[in-house]
């Protein structure tokens, strides 16, 4: 990590824990709830957001001195939407299978407030390289939560991980199911994602008591 100054390292590492976009900044919740029923979907979403956020941050950062402040929100939204649409069209033309798998996420990415939030809070006031790092760091922090939630929801909800039946076969009654274990279908529903994130916040804040809120 010699190429990165201490400050730059902070940009990458802080969002993973103490300044996590989901549990601290309250950004990007909708998608965290919508797609975490499966671990695979969580990983795909995390990677897509990382791409869009890093690219968008760089673009906005390059444009930061020429964007009129009165219409900056609309400019930011248009930049991200245009970016996503172009990527989507290119994928559709040259990697159709991949684009089919990603199509569900397109809308979720554009409406993801983590993207607007970071544009507004960071890219508008910092250079392209630091904005790029900020984008990668925040998307990683976001992805981390997504993957944790996805892991538990898929494991407890369908007894699989990335589609592999890790707990045995529920129909043939092998593995854990032979002992009378049942999948908790409730974990697949979105409200449980909220509760899992709540528990993650609980654990995080009991480890780092500085983060505890007043009331």
């Amino acid at each position: 990590m010699a190429i990165l100054s201490k400050k730059d390292q902070g940009l990458l590492m802080d969002p993973l824990a103490d300044n996590n976009p989901i549990t601290i900044q309250v950004l990007g919740i909708c998608s965290a709830l919508a797609i975490t029923a499966q671990l695979k979907a969580s990983i795909v979403m995390a990677l897509s957001v990382m791409f869009v956020l890093a690219m968008g941050n760089v673009v906005i950062s390059l444009m930061r001195n020429i964007i009129p402040s009165k219409i900056r929100i609309i400019v930011q939204l248009i930049v991200v939407a245009a970016l996503v649409i172009i990527v989507d069209q290119v994928l559709k033309a040259f990697a159709y299978e991949l684009s089919k798998a990603l199509s569900v996420f397109i809308g979720l990415i554009i409406t993801n407030c983590i993207i607007m939030g970071r544009f507004e809070a960071f890219a508008l006031g910092n250079g392209p390289w630091r904005s790029f790092l900020d984008g990668i760091g925040n998307a990683a922090g976001y992805g981390l939560i997504l993957i944790i939630v996805g892991f538990f929801r898929e494991l407890l909800g369908s007894g699989t991980l990335l589609g592999f039946k890790v707990l045995g076969d529920p129909i043939q009654k092998t593995g854990l199911y032979a002992l009378g274990y049942e999948d908790n279908g409730f974990m697949l529903l979105s409200p449980m994602a909220l509760i899992v994130v709540g528990i993650i916040i609980w654990i995080q804040r009991s480890r780092n008591t500085k983060l505890i809120e007043e009331n």
Binding site: I66, I67, P68, I71, V75, I78, V79, A82, I85, I86, Q89, V90, K92, A93, F94
Partner: peptide, 24 residues
């Protein structure tokens, strides 16, 4: 700025969409 932005983004999108349309 708004006018230029609309023109640039609009033509960029239209260009991508129309040039990729046959493949899609």
């Amino acid at each position: 700025f708004a006018v230029v932005m609309v023109l640039v983004v609009g033509s960029l999108l239209a260009f991508t969409a129309s040039s990729l349309k046959p493949t899609i």
